[in-house]
Design a protein around this nucleic acid. Structure first.
Lengths: 125, 125
DNA sequence: GTAGATGCAAACGCTTTGCCGCTTA
DNA sequence: TAAGCGGCAAAGCGTTTGCATCTAC
C-alpha cells in the first residue's frame, strides 16, 4: 500500500481520535488537513485499511458505521446525546461469559453494549 | 387510520412475532398472507404505526432497523449467528443505573445491549 | 360519495465503480 | 516508467414520494 498524503491524513484522524469516526467525520477532519480530499477516496481508503486489518468497524444502533484502530481490544462505547460524539470506554460491565445459556435456550458467544448520556464537556442542561 | 387488509396483514406479523422484524421480513411474511403487497405500502404503514405509537423501532448494530410492539418494556435482544433471527430477551443484565458517572466524566442515562450466539433451534455446529 | 390507502414508477441520497490523468517508489 | 492512487461523474441500491386508481367508511 502506497504512502500518499491522502492516506496519511485519513489514518492520522482515525488513530488520533478518542472514539471511532464515521466516513463523514473522517472526511471532514481529514479535509481540514488536506483540502480537496474526495469522498470516494475516503470510502476506498477506509475499505482498504479495514481489509488490511489496520482499522475495525464499530456498529452502533441506528448510526452509520464508524472506524477505529484495530489495536483496541474488547471495549464498548459511549454516545453523548448532546454533542453526538462517540467515545471509547474501558471497562466491560456485562457479566455474561461466553457459553452462558439463557432461559429460552440462547447460547451467548458475544455481546455489544452502547451507553448513552452526557460526556464531561457537555453540561447537564 | 383505516382498517385495510394490507394493514391488517402487516400488523399481524409485527404483533405475533417473537422478536422485532425488519421491513423486508414484514414484507416477506405479510406477502405470504396477502400476495401482491407492495413494498411502499409496508414502508408507509410501518411509518404510520410508529408515528401512532403502536410499534417502536429497534436498532441493532449493523442491522437494518426492526420494529415490534410498543407495549414491550425495557428489554434487550438476542441475535442468532446461525439463522440470523432476532429474539426478545427478558432480563437486563446491565448493572448501570441512570445517573451513574463513569471514569472520564460520562453520565449514563440509557444503554443498549445486544447478545449474539445460537438460538435453541440452531445446533451448536 | 369522498377522504384516505394502494401500487407503480420516478425521485432521492448515500455508497460504489469506471475512467483517466497524476503520483509514488 | 509503470502500477497504484485520486478525483470526478456515472451507476447502484434501498427508501421515499407523486400520481392515478381503488376502497373503506
Amino acid at each position: 500500500m502506497r504512502r500518499t498524503k491522502q492516506r496519511q491524513a485519513i489514518l492520522n484522524q482515525l488513530l488520533s481520535s478518542d472514539g471511532p469516526l464515521s466516513v463523514n467525520e473522517v472526511h471532514e477532519r481529514a479535509s481540514s488537513e488536506l483540502s480537496g480530499l474526495g469522498m470516494a477516496t475516503v470510502y476506498r481508503t477506509i475499505k482498504a485499511l479495514k481489509d488490511e486489518g489496520v482499522i475495525s468497524v464499530v456498529e452502533l444502533p441506528g448510526e452509520d458505521p464508524r472506524y477505529e484502530s484495530a489495536e483496541l481490544g474488547h471495549h464498548h462505547h459511549f454516545r453523548c446525546l448532546s454533542c453526538e460524539q462517540t467515545f471509547d470506554l474501558g471497562a466491560c460491565p456485562v457479566g455474561i461469559p461466553r457459553g452462558t445459556t439463557l432461559p429460552g435456550g440462547y447460547t451467548v458467544e458475544d455481546h455489544s453494549l452502547t451507553l448513552y448520556g452526557r460526556c464531561a464537556a457537555c453540561p447537564a442542561n
